[in-house]
Computed example of a mutant assay.
Amino acid sequence: MLNIGIIGVSEGNGHPFSFSAIVNGYDDEGLRQSGWKVIYDYVRERHPSEFGFDGTRVSHVWTQDSDQTRRLQAACNIPRAVEHWSDLKDAVDAVILARDDHKRHAEMALPLLEAGLPVFVDKPLSLDSEDLQRFRPYLEDGQLMSCSGLRYARELDEARANVESYGSFRCVRGAVVLGWEKYAIHLLEAVSTVLPSVPVSVAPVPAEHASVAITMSDGTLFQLDALGSVPKTFQVDLWGTDRRSTHEITDNFSAFRRTLWHFVEMVRTGTPAIDSAETLRLMQVLRAGRRALQERRPVSLDNIEAE
C-alpha cells in the first residue's frame, strides 16, 4: 500500500478536499458539510470507477486548523491526522502539499524532500529564485512534481493530438479568473502542452486587470489575461495558419485525476513526470510577468534566469 500524506489548507483553495476525494473516494454527507459545495457538486456527478488508484490511499492529513482537519478526514475517509506537518516524514511514503501559498512551499516541502519523500507541490511551485534553485535537483531526480492540473486538461486533448493541423501558430489567447501570481500558471501549463515553442519575453498590456503579451521562441504571440473577480473563466483560443479553435476548460475532476495519476507513477518509478526545465521555465514566466506588470516594461526570461 502506498500511503500518502496531504497538507492543507490555504485561503480559497479546496484542493486538499478534491485531491483526497479522488484518491480515497468520499463520504457524501461529510463532503456535503465540508464547506466546498463546488467540489461536492462536481464530485458527486462522477462514476464510482473514476475514484481511487490501485494500492494507494491518502492515509494521513495535517492542516493548521483542527476543525478543517476533522472536516477533511470526514469528507475524504482519511483515517489519521498528525500534530505537525513534519510528522509526516515518519508516517507516509509520499506527500501532497495541497496549498497554493507559494511563499511557504520551500519551508514545508524541502524538509520532506530532504528526508527522501516524494512530494507533489500545488501550483505555483515558487517565485523565489533561491528556492527554485534548491528545488531543482529534486525536480531533476523525479522526487518532486509541481504543476497546475490544467496541464492535463481533457478539453485540450484533441488539440495536442493534432497540433500539426494548425499549421504555423500565429496567436494564442488565454483568459483566467483572479490574479497573476496564483492563477496565470493554469493557462501557462495548459498552453505549454500544445505549442511547440517556449516563452522568451513578457511585456505588459495596458488594461485595468493583469494582462501581458508573451513572445514565444518561434514568434507566436501569447496574450494572457488574469481578469480578477469575474465569473469562472479558464479559456484558451488558438489561431494557426490552417485552423483556429476555442477551448473552455471546465472539467476540473479529470484534470486533477490525471495530475494525481502522474504523481503516483512518479512515486512508483522515480521517473520525473514533467521535464524539470519546463517547470522552472514557467516559474520564470511568472516572475517575468510580475516584474513586467510592476515596472510596466518588457522583461526577458534570460534576465530573470540570470538573477
Rank of each mutant, 00 (worst) to 15 (best):
N3K: 14
I4K: 02
I7E: 00
G8K: 12
G8P: 12
V9M: 07
E11K: 11
G12E: 04
G14I: 01
F17C: 01
Y26I: 00
R32C: 10
Y40N: 12
Y42T: 03
H47F: 05
H47A: 12
S49Y: 11
R57G: 14
V58N: 13
W62Q: 07
W62F: 14
D67T: 15
R71Y: 07
W85N: 08
W85E: 13
D100S: 14
H102T: 13
E107I: 05
L113E: 07
L113S: 05
E114Q: 12
L117I: 06
P118W: 02
V121Y: 12
D122K: 01
S129T: 10
C147Y: 00
E158S: 13
N162K: 15
Y166G: 02
R173K: 08
V177K: 06
K182I: 13
K182H: 13
A184P: 01
H186N: 12
L187M: 15
L187E: 12
L188R: 05
L195G: 10
V198K: 09
P199L: 04
P204V: 00
P204F: 02
P204Y: 05
V205N: 06
A207M: 05
E208R: 13
H209N: 10
S211I: 00
V212A: 09
V212Y: 00
S217F: 03
L224N: 01
S229A: 13
Q235Y: 05
G240I: 01
D242C: 09
S245C: 01
I249E: 07
S254W: 11
S254L: 12
A255I: 02
W261F: 10
I274G: 05
A277S: 09
E278K: 13
T279Q: 09
L282E: 06
L282K: 08
V285L: 05
L286Y: 04
R287Y: 05
A288Y: 10
A292M: 01
E295N: 07
P298I: 00
P298E: 09
E305T: 12
